[in-house]
Design a binder for these strands. Structure first.
Lengths: 221, 221
DNA sequence: TTAGAAAATGAGTGATTACTCACTTCGAAA
DNA sequence: TTTCGAAGTGAGTAATCACTCATTTTCTAA
Protein backbone atom coordinates (compact mmCIF):
# COMPACT_ATOMS: atom_id res chain seq x y z
CA UNK A 1 0.00 0.00 0.00
CA UNK A 2 2.77 2.38 0.96
CA UNK A 3 4.72 1.25 -2.05
CA UNK A 4 1.65 1.78 -4.20
CA UNK A 5 1.53 5.45 -3.34
CA UNK A 6 5.28 5.86 -3.63
CA UNK A 7 4.88 4.36 -7.05
CA UNK A 8 1.92 6.63 -7.80
CA UNK A 9 4.05 9.65 -7.00
CA UNK A 10 6.99 8.49 -9.11
CA UNK A 11 4.75 7.64 -12.04
CA UNK A 12 2.95 10.93 -11.75
CA UNK A 13 6.15 12.95 -11.72
CA UNK A 14 7.50 11.00 -14.67
CA UNK A 15 4.27 11.19 -16.66
CA UNK A 16 3.86 14.86 -15.87
CA UNK A 17 7.34 15.63 -17.13
CA UNK A 18 6.69 13.62 -20.31
CA UNK A 19 3.40 15.41 -20.84
CA UNK A 20 5.04 18.76 -20.39
CA UNK A 21 7.47 17.99 -23.21
CA UNK A 22 4.96 16.48 -25.62
CA UNK A 23 2.63 19.44 -25.40
CA UNK A 24 1.58 21.49 -28.39
CA UNK A 25 1.91 25.24 -28.06
CA UNK A 26 -1.86 25.62 -28.23
CA UNK A 27 -2.32 22.88 -25.67
CA UNK A 28 -0.06 24.77 -23.29
CA UNK A 29 -2.03 27.94 -23.85
CA UNK A 30 -5.25 26.07 -23.12
CA UNK A 31 -3.86 24.84 -19.81
CA UNK A 32 -2.59 28.27 -18.85
CA UNK A 33 -5.93 29.88 -19.69
CA UNK A 34 -7.86 27.20 -17.81
CA UNK A 35 -5.68 27.63 -14.72
CA UNK A 36 -6.21 31.38 -14.78
CA UNK A 37 -9.97 31.31 -15.20
CA UNK A 38 -10.56 28.34 -12.89
CA UNK A 39 -8.67 30.17 -10.14
CA UNK A 40 -10.53 33.42 -10.80
CA UNK A 41 -14.11 32.17 -11.07
CA UNK A 42 -14.07 28.54 -10.01
CA UNK A 43 -14.40 25.44 -12.14
CA UNK A 44 -18.21 25.31 -12.35
CA UNK A 45 -18.55 28.99 -13.28
CA UNK A 46 -16.00 28.71 -16.09
CA UNK A 47 -17.17 27.94 -19.63
CA UNK A 48 -15.09 26.11 -22.18
CA UNK A 49 -15.81 28.87 -24.69
CA UNK A 50 -14.19 31.41 -22.35
CA UNK A 51 -11.13 29.20 -21.94
CA UNK A 52 -10.86 28.87 -25.73
CA UNK A 53 -11.20 32.61 -26.14
CA UNK A 54 -8.49 33.49 -23.61
CA UNK A 55 -6.21 30.81 -25.01
CA UNK A 56 -6.73 32.20 -28.53
CA UNK A 57 -7.92 28.82 -29.74
CA UNK A 58 -11.05 27.29 -31.25
CA UNK A 59 -13.36 25.65 -28.74
CA UNK A 60 -13.05 22.33 -30.53
CA UNK A 61 -9.30 22.29 -29.94
CA UNK A 62 -9.87 21.93 -26.21
CA UNK A 63 -11.81 18.72 -26.77
CA UNK A 64 -9.14 17.34 -29.12
CA UNK A 65 -6.79 17.21 -26.14
CA UNK A 66 -9.19 16.72 -23.23
CA UNK A 67 -12.15 14.42 -23.49
CA UNK A 68 -14.30 16.52 -21.15
CA UNK A 69 -14.10 19.70 -19.09
CA UNK A 70 -13.61 17.58 -15.97
CA UNK A 71 -10.72 15.84 -17.70
CA UNK A 72 -9.10 19.24 -18.13
CA UNK A 73 -9.57 19.95 -14.42
CA UNK A 74 -8.01 16.65 -13.37
CA UNK A 75 -5.03 17.25 -15.65
CA UNK A 76 -4.47 20.48 -13.75
CA UNK A 77 -5.20 19.28 -10.23
CA UNK A 78 -3.43 15.93 -10.33
CA UNK A 79 0.19 17.08 -10.58
CA UNK A 80 -0.20 19.90 -8.04
CA UNK A 81 -1.48 17.48 -5.43
CA UNK A 82 1.53 15.26 -6.00
CA UNK A 83 3.94 18.16 -5.71
CA UNK A 84 2.19 19.37 -2.57
CA UNK A 85 2.97 16.23 -0.61
CA UNK A 86 6.19 15.37 -2.43
CA UNK A 87 8.52 16.51 0.41
CA UNK A 88 7.04 13.84 2.65
CA UNK A 89 8.01 11.14 0.18
CA UNK A 90 11.60 12.23 -0.30
CA UNK A 91 14.44 9.96 0.75
CA UNK A 92 15.78 12.73 2.98
CA UNK A 93 12.64 12.59 5.02
CA UNK A 94 13.02 8.96 6.03
CA UNK A 95 16.75 9.37 6.49
CA UNK A 96 16.14 12.14 8.97
CA UNK A 97 15.39 9.60 11.68
CA UNK A 98 18.83 8.03 11.37
CA UNK A 99 20.70 11.18 12.29
CA UNK A 100 20.53 11.14 16.08
CA UNK A 101 21.56 14.73 16.75
CA UNK A 102 19.27 16.43 14.29
CA UNK A 103 16.98 19.03 15.90
CA UNK A 104 13.22 19.04 15.21
CA UNK A 105 13.06 22.78 14.83
CA UNK A 106 15.57 22.62 11.98
CA UNK A 107 13.27 20.20 10.25
CA UNK A 108 10.19 22.33 10.93
CA UNK A 109 11.94 25.44 9.65
CA UNK A 110 13.04 23.64 6.48
CA UNK A 111 9.51 22.44 5.78
CA UNK A 112 8.03 25.88 6.46
CA UNK A 113 10.58 27.58 4.21
CA UNK A 114 10.11 25.07 1.42
CA UNK A 115 6.30 25.09 1.46
CA UNK A 116 6.14 28.89 1.72
CA UNK A 117 8.11 29.22 -1.50
CA UNK A 118 6.12 26.41 -3.08
CA UNK A 119 2.81 28.09 -2.22
CA UNK A 120 3.98 31.41 -3.67
CA UNK A 121 4.95 29.70 -6.91
CA UNK A 122 1.62 27.86 -7.15
CA UNK A 123 -1.01 30.25 -5.80
CA UNK A 124 -3.51 29.71 -8.61
CA UNK A 125 -3.10 25.94 -8.68
CA UNK A 126 -3.49 25.67 -4.92
CA UNK A 127 -6.59 27.84 -5.03
CA UNK A 128 -8.12 25.49 -7.60
CA UNK A 129 -7.11 22.45 -5.57
CA UNK A 130 -8.60 23.77 -2.34
CA UNK A 131 -11.80 24.86 -4.00
CA UNK A 132 -12.51 21.77 -6.09
CA UNK A 133 -11.44 18.89 -3.86
CA UNK A 134 -14.44 19.19 -1.49
CA UNK A 135 -16.85 18.90 -4.43
CA UNK A 136 -15.14 16.03 -6.22
CA UNK A 137 -15.61 12.74 -4.33
CA UNK A 138 -12.82 10.84 -6.04
CA UNK A 139 -10.33 13.67 -5.58
CA UNK A 140 -11.46 13.96 -1.98
CA UNK A 141 -10.99 10.26 -1.38
CA UNK A 142 -7.54 10.33 -2.91
CA UNK A 143 -6.45 13.32 -0.83
CA UNK A 144 -7.73 11.76 2.38
CA UNK A 145 -6.01 8.48 1.56
CA UNK A 146 -2.65 10.00 0.72
CA UNK A 147 -2.73 12.27 3.74
CA UNK A 148 -3.96 9.89 6.41
CA UNK A 149 -2.15 6.79 5.17
CA UNK A 150 1.16 8.33 4.24
CA UNK A 151 1.86 11.92 5.22
CA UNK A 152 0.34 11.35 8.65
CA UNK A 153 2.10 8.00 9.19
CA UNK A 154 5.47 9.49 8.38
CA UNK A 155 4.88 12.50 10.58
CA UNK A 156 3.84 10.23 13.45
CA UNK A 157 7.07 8.25 13.21
CA UNK A 158 9.04 11.48 13.09
CA UNK A 159 7.30 13.00 16.10
CA UNK A 160 7.55 9.76 18.06
CA UNK A 161 11.27 9.71 17.32
CA UNK A 162 11.83 13.20 18.67
CA UNK A 163 9.60 12.52 21.65
CA UNK A 164 11.80 9.55 22.53
CA UNK A 165 14.83 11.77 22.16
CA UNK A 166 13.32 14.20 24.66
CA UNK A 167 13.03 17.07 22.20
CA UNK A 168 9.23 17.07 22.07
CA UNK A 169 6.52 17.08 24.71
CA UNK A 170 4.96 13.72 25.65
CA UNK A 171 1.42 12.79 24.66
CA UNK A 172 -0.52 11.76 21.54
CA UNK A 173 1.57 12.42 18.46
CA UNK A 174 -1.40 13.74 16.50
CA UNK A 175 -1.80 16.63 18.90
CA UNK A 176 1.79 17.64 18.31
CA UNK A 177 1.23 17.29 14.59
CA UNK A 178 -1.95 19.37 14.73
CA UNK A 179 -0.20 22.26 16.47
CA UNK A 180 2.72 22.07 14.06
CA UNK A 181 0.63 21.96 10.91
CA UNK A 182 -1.62 24.75 12.23
CA UNK A 183 1.42 26.95 12.74
CA UNK A 184 2.96 26.31 9.33
CA UNK A 185 -0.27 26.43 7.35
CA UNK A 186 -1.34 29.52 9.28
CA UNK A 187 1.91 31.20 8.33
CA UNK A 188 1.68 30.23 4.68
CA UNK A 189 -2.03 31.06 4.28
CA UNK A 190 -1.59 34.43 5.94
CA UNK A 191 1.30 35.66 3.84
CA UNK A 192 0.58 33.93 0.54
CA UNK A 193 -3.22 34.10 0.30
CA UNK A 194 -4.60 36.64 2.74
CA UNK A 195 -2.12 39.54 2.79
CA UNK A 196 0.53 38.75 0.16
CA UNK A 197 1.16 42.47 -0.33
CA UNK A 198 2.32 42.95 3.25
CA UNK A 199 6.13 42.85 3.06
CA UNK A 200 7.88 40.40 5.37
CA UNK A 201 11.30 38.90 5.90
CA UNK A 202 10.56 35.23 5.32
CA UNK A 203 13.39 33.97 7.49
CA UNK A 204 12.39 36.25 10.35
CA UNK A 205 8.73 35.20 10.24
CA UNK A 206 9.59 31.52 10.02
CA UNK A 207 12.01 31.77 12.92
CA UNK A 208 9.50 33.62 15.06
CA UNK A 209 6.61 31.25 14.33
CA UNK A 210 8.67 28.08 14.80
CA UNK A 211 10.28 29.54 17.92
CA UNK A 212 6.84 30.11 19.48
CA UNK A 213 5.81 26.63 18.40
CA UNK A 214 8.90 25.01 19.88
CA UNK A 215 8.54 26.79 23.19
CA UNK A 216 5.06 25.30 23.31
CA UNK A 217 6.08 21.83 22.21
CA UNK A 218 9.33 21.50 24.17
CA UNK A 219 9.46 18.68 26.70
CA UNK A 220 8.16 19.88 30.06
CA UNK A 221 10.16 19.48 33.24
CA UNK B 1 -16.59 54.05 10.93
CA UNK B 2 -16.37 51.73 13.90
CA UNK B 3 -19.85 52.82 14.86
CA UNK B 4 -21.00 52.16 11.30
CA UNK B 5 -20.01 48.53 11.53
CA UNK B 6 -21.37 48.18 15.04
CA UNK B 7 -24.59 49.54 13.60
CA UNK B 8 -24.34 47.19 10.65
CA UNK B 9 -24.13 44.24 12.99
CA UNK B 10 -27.04 45.38 15.16
CA UNK B 11 -29.21 46.10 12.11
CA UNK B 12 -28.31 42.78 10.58
CA UNK B 13 -29.16 40.83 13.71
CA UNK B 14 -32.45 42.70 14.08
CA UNK B 15 -33.40 42.40 10.41
CA UNK B 16 -32.43 38.75 10.35
CA UNK B 17 -34.66 38.02 13.33
CA UNK B 18 -37.52 39.89 11.71
CA UNK B 19 -37.05 38.04 8.47
CA UNK B 20 -37.01 34.74 10.29
CA UNK B 21 -40.43 35.48 11.72
CA UNK B 22 -42.02 36.88 8.56
CA UNK B 23 -41.03 33.89 6.48
CA UNK B 24 -43.55 31.71 4.68
CA UNK B 25 -43.25 27.97 5.20
CA UNK B 26 -42.27 27.51 1.55
CA UNK B 27 -39.76 30.32 1.78
CA UNK B 28 -38.11 28.56 4.71
CA UNK B 29 -38.01 25.32 2.75
CA UNK B 30 -36.38 27.14 -0.17
CA UNK B 31 -33.65 28.50 2.09
CA UNK B 32 -33.04 25.12 3.72
CA UNK B 33 -32.84 23.41 0.34
CA UNK B 34 -30.53 26.08 -1.04
CA UNK B 35 -28.20 25.81 1.97
CA UNK B 36 -28.03 22.04 1.58
CA UNK B 37 -27.32 21.99 -2.14
CA UNK B 38 -24.99 25.01 -2.12
CA UNK B 39 -22.89 23.33 0.56
CA UNK B 40 -22.90 20.01 -1.29
CA UNK B 41 -22.12 21.12 -4.84
CA UNK B 42 -21.20 24.79 -4.61
CA UNK B 43 -23.19 27.83 -5.67
CA UNK B 44 -22.29 27.85 -9.37
CA UNK B 45 -22.99 24.14 -9.85
CA UNK B 46 -26.43 24.40 -8.24
CA UNK B 47 -29.45 25.03 -10.46
CA UNK B 48 -32.56 26.86 -9.29
CA UNK B 49 -34.68 24.00 -10.63
CA UNK B 50 -32.89 21.59 -8.30
CA UNK B 51 -33.46 23.89 -5.34
CA UNK B 52 -37.15 24.12 -6.21
CA UNK B 53 -37.38 20.36 -6.53
CA UNK B 54 -35.76 19.63 -3.17
CA UNK B 55 -37.83 22.34 -1.49
CA UNK B 56 -41.00 20.86 -2.99
CA UNK B 57 -41.86 24.17 -4.59
CA UNK B 58 -42.41 25.56 -8.07
CA UNK B 59 -39.36 27.21 -9.59
CA UNK B 60 -41.25 30.49 -9.94
CA UNK B 61 -41.76 30.63 -6.18
CA UNK B 62 -38.03 31.07 -5.63
CA UNK B 63 -38.07 34.21 -7.76
CA UNK B 64 -41.13 35.61 -5.93
CA UNK B 65 -38.94 35.87 -2.82
CA UNK B 66 -35.47 36.38 -4.28
CA UNK B 67 -34.88 38.58 -7.28
CA UNK B 68 -31.98 36.49 -8.54
CA UNK B 69 -30.04 33.37 -7.62
CA UNK B 70 -27.23 35.58 -6.31
CA UNK B 71 -29.78 37.37 -4.13
CA UNK B 72 -30.61 34.00 -2.59
CA UNK B 73 -26.92 33.38 -1.92
CA UNK B 74 -26.45 36.75 -0.24
CA UNK B 75 -29.49 36.16 1.96
CA UNK B 76 -27.79 32.99 3.18
CA UNK B 77 -24.23 34.29 3.47
CA UNK B 78 -24.93 37.69 5.03
CA UNK B 79 -26.20 36.61 8.45
CA UNK B 80 -23.59 33.86 8.93
CA UNK B 81 -20.78 36.34 8.38
CA UNK B 82 -22.26 38.62 11.03
CA UNK B 83 -22.60 35.77 13.52
CA UNK B 84 -19.07 34.63 12.78
CA UNK B 85 -17.49 37.86 13.99
CA UNK B 86 -20.20 38.73 16.54
CA UNK B 87 -18.12 37.76 19.62
CA UNK B 88 -15.63 40.46 18.76
CA UNK B 89 -18.35 43.09 18.88
CA UNK B 90 -19.82 42.07 22.21
CA UNK B 91 -19.70 44.43 25.17
CA UNK B 92 -17.86 41.78 27.19
CA UNK B 93 -15.00 41.93 24.77
CA UNK B 94 -14.24 45.59 25.30
CA UNK B 95 -14.88 45.30 29.01
CA UNK B 96 -12.25 42.58 29.25
CA UNK B 97 -9.51 45.18 29.22
CA UNK B 98 -10.85 46.84 32.36
CA UNK B 99 -10.44 43.77 34.53
CA UNK B 100 -6.78 43.91 35.48
CA UNK B 101 -6.34 40.36 36.76
CA UNK B 102 -7.99 38.55 33.91
CA UNK B 103 -5.70 35.95 32.27
CA UNK B 104 -5.25 35.84 28.47
CA UNK B 105 -5.48 32.09 28.33
CA UNK B 106 -8.95 32.21 29.90
CA UNK B 107 -9.99 34.51 27.11
CA UNK B 108 -8.38 32.33 24.43
CA UNK B 109 -10.05 29.25 25.85
CA UNK B 110 -13.45 30.95 25.93
CA UNK B 111 -13.13 32.04 22.31
CA UNK B 112 -11.95 28.60 21.21
CA UNK B 113 -14.81 26.87 23.04
CA UNK B 114 -17.39 29.28 21.68
CA UNK B 115 -16.26 29.18 18.07
CA UNK B 116 -15.87 25.38 18.13
CA UNK B 117 -19.51 24.99 19.10
CA UNK B 118 -20.52 27.70 16.64
CA UNK B 119 -18.70 25.98 13.77
CA UNK B 120 -20.34 22.63 14.59
CA UNK B 121 -23.77 24.26 14.51
CA UNK B 122 -23.09 26.00 11.20
CA UNK B 123 -20.97 23.59 9.16
CA UNK B 124 -22.94 23.97 5.93
CA UNK B 125 -23.23 27.75 6.16
CA UNK B 126 -19.52 28.14 6.89
CA UNK B 127 -18.68 25.86 3.98
CA UNK B 128 -20.73 28.09 1.68
CA UNK B 129 -19.15 31.23 3.13
CA UNK B 130 -15.60 29.99 2.71
CA UNK B 131 -16.15 28.78 -0.82
CA UNK B 132 -18.06 31.74 -2.22
CA UNK B 133 -16.30 34.72 -0.64
CA UNK B 134 -13.16 34.43 -2.80
CA UNK B 135 -15.28 34.58 -5.97
CA UNK B 136 -17.56 37.43 -4.94
CA UNK B 137 -15.69 40.75 -4.95
CA UNK B 138 -18.20 42.68 -2.85
CA UNK B 139 -18.42 39.93 -0.25
CA UNK B 140 -14.64 39.72 -0.28
CA UNK B 141 -14.30 43.45 0.24
CA UNK B 142 -16.76 43.41 3.08
CA UNK B 143 -15.01 40.52 4.83
CA UNK B 144 -11.62 42.18 4.49
CA UNK B 145 -13.00 45.46 5.79
CA UNK B 146 -14.74 43.99 8.81
CA UNK B 147 -11.77 41.83 9.66
CA UNK B 148 -8.92 44.28 9.20
CA UNK B 149 -10.71 47.38 10.48
CA UNK B 150 -12.55 45.88 13.44
CA UNK B 151 -11.70 42.33 14.49
CA UNK B 152 -8.00 43.01 13.99
CA UNK B 153 -8.07 46.39 15.73
CA UNK B 154 -9.79 44.95 18.79
CA UNK B 155 -7.42 42.01 18.94
CA UNK B 156 -4.45 44.36 18.69
CA UNK B 157 -5.67 46.40 21.64
CA UNK B 158 -6.26 43.23 23.60
CA UNK B 159 -2.85 41.76 22.87
CA UNK B 160 -1.12 45.08 23.58
CA UNK B 161 -2.92 45.20 26.91
CA UNK B 162 -1.69 41.77 27.94
CA UNK B 163 1.79 42.48 26.66
CA UNK B 164 1.92 45.53 28.91
CA UNK B 165 0.74 43.39 31.79
CA UNK B 166 3.62 41.01 31.15
CA UNK B 167 1.43 38.05 30.25
CA UNK B 168 2.41 37.94 26.59
CA UNK B 169 5.73 37.96 24.75
CA UNK B 170 6.99 41.30 23.43
CA UNK B 171 7.03 42.12 19.73
CA UNK B 172 4.61 42.98 16.92
CA UNK B 173 1.06 42.27 18.03
CA UNK B 174 0.07 40.83 14.68
CA UNK B 175 2.58 38.01 15.09
CA UNK B 176 1.00 37.07 18.39
CA UNK B 177 -2.42 37.27 16.75
CA UNK B 178 -1.30 35.12 13.83
CA UNK B 179 -0.07 32.34 16.12
CA UNK B 180 -3.23 32.52 18.19
CA UNK B 181 -5.64 32.47 15.28
CA UNK B 182 -3.65 29.68 13.61
CA UNK B 183 -4.00 27.57 16.74
CA UNK B 184 -7.72 28.13 17.21
CA UNK B 185 -8.68 27.87 13.53
CA UNK B 186 -6.44 24.82 13.18
CA UNK B 187 -8.25 23.19 16.07
CA UNK B 188 -11.70 24.02 14.76
CA UNK B 189 -11.00 23.10 11.13
CA UNK B 190 -9.45 19.79 12.13
CA UNK B 191 -12.26 18.57 14.33
CA UNK B 192 -15.26 20.18 12.63
CA UNK B 193 -14.38 19.90 8.94
CA UNK B 194 -11.56 17.41 8.41
CA UNK B 195 -12.17 14.57 10.91
CA UNK B 196 -15.48 15.35 12.65
CA UNK B 197 -16.06 11.62 13.23
CA UNK B 198 -12.95 11.28 15.40
CA UNK B 199 -14.23 11.48 18.98
CA UNK B 200 -12.59 14.06 21.24
CA UNK B 201 -13.12 15.66 24.61
CA UNK B 202 -13.54 19.28 23.60
CA UNK B 203 -12.31 20.69 26.90
CA UNK B 204 -9.24 18.47 26.85
CA UNK B 205 -8.30 19.42 23.29
CA UNK B 206 -8.86 23.11 23.90
CA UNK B 207 -6.79 23.03 27.08
CA UNK B 208 -3.96 21.19 25.36
CA UNK B 209 -3.88 23.44 22.31
CA UNK B 210 -4.10 26.68 24.31
CA UNK B 211 -1.55 25.37 26.80
CA UNK B 212 0.95 24.77 24.00
CA UNK B 213 0.15 28.19 22.55
CA UNK B 214 0.62 29.95 25.90
CA UNK B 215 3.94 28.24 26.58
CA UNK B 216 5.02 29.66 23.24
CA UNK B 217 3.57 33.11 23.77
CA UNK B 218 4.50 33.59 27.44
CA UNK B 219 6.82 36.49 28.19
CA UNK B 220 10.45 35.39 27.96
CA UNK B 221 12.90 35.95 30.78
C1' DT C 1 7.83 17.40 -53.52
C1' DT C 2 4.51 14.77 -51.76
C1' DA C 3 1.62 11.77 -48.96
C1' DG C 4 -0.40 10.78 -44.79
C1' DA C 5 -1.15 11.72 -40.10
C1' DA C 6 -1.95 14.78 -36.49
C1' DA C 7 -3.64 19.30 -35.08
C1' DA C 8 -6.88 22.72 -35.41
C1' DT C 9 -11.19 24.63 -36.75
C1' DG C 10 -16.02 26.58 -36.05
C1' DA C 11 -20.66 25.92 -37.27
C1' DG C 12 -23.98 23.02 -35.35
C1' DT C 13 -26.46 20.02 -31.56
C1' DG C 14 -29.59 19.00 -27.89
C1' DA C 15 -29.73 19.88 -23.16
C1' DT C 16 -29.89 23.01 -19.49
C1' DT C 17 -29.74 27.51 -17.54
C1' DA C 18 -31.74 31.65 -14.84
C1' DC C 19 -35.54 34.12 -15.11
C1' DT C 20 -40.56 35.91 -16.75
C1' DC C 21 -45.37 36.27 -16.71
C1' DA C 22 -50.18 35.40 -17.19
C1' DC C 23 -52.69 32.93 -14.31
C1' DT C 24 -54.62 30.33 -10.07
C1' DT C 25 -54.97 29.61 -5.13
C1' DC C 26 -55.01 31.18 -0.54
C1' DG C 27 -56.09 33.76 3.59
C1' DA C 28 -57.70 37.41 6.19
C1' DA C 29 -60.36 41.60 6.74
C1' DA C 30 -64.72 43.85 5.84
C1' DT D 1 -69.99 35.93 1.69
C1' DT D 2 -67.23 38.96 -0.83
C1' DT D 3 -63.06 41.12 -1.96
C1' DC D 4 -58.34 41.90 -2.73
C1' DG D 5 -53.49 41.58 -2.21
C1' DA D 6 -50.04 38.31 -1.46
C1' DA D 7 -48.33 33.66 -2.36
C1' DG D 8 -47.68 30.24 -5.47
C1' DT D 9 -47.61 28.11 -10.07
C1' DG D 10 -45.51 26.09 -14.36
C1' DA D 11 -45.23 26.59 -19.19
C1' DG D 12 -42.46 29.48 -21.92
C1' DT D 13 -38.00 32.13 -23.44
C1' DA D 14 -33.67 33.51 -24.99
C1' DA D 15 -29.14 32.61 -23.78
C1' DT D 16 -25.60 29.67 -22.80
C1' DC D 17 -23.71 25.25 -21.91
C1' DA D 18 -20.43 21.14 -22.97
C1' DC D 19 -19.50 18.61 -26.64
C1' DT D 20 -19.44 16.70 -31.91
C1' DC D 21 -17.86 16.31 -36.45
C1' DA D 22 -16.99 17.17 -41.23
C1' DT D 23 -13.58 19.87 -43.02
C1' DT D 24 -9.21 22.47 -43.45
C1' DT D 25 -4.47 23.51 -42.05
C1' DT D 26 -0.01 22.24 -40.42
C1' DC D 27 3.70 19.19 -39.65
C1' DT D 28 6.79 15.35 -40.62
C1' DA D 29 9.16 11.84 -42.88
C1' DA D 30 10.35 9.63 -47.08
Amino acid sequence: MTQDVDQWLKDLVRLTDEDDENRTEKQTRILEAAIEIFSEKGYAATSTSEIAQRAGVAEGTIFRHYKTKKDLLLTIVGPIMAKLVAPFFMRDFTKLLDKPYERVEDFYRAIARDRLVFARQNIKLLKILIHEVPFNPELQGHVMNVFSQHVMKRLERLVKHFQDEGQLIEGPTWRVIRSTISTIIGLVVTHVFLVPAYPIDDEEEINWAIDVLMHGLAKRN
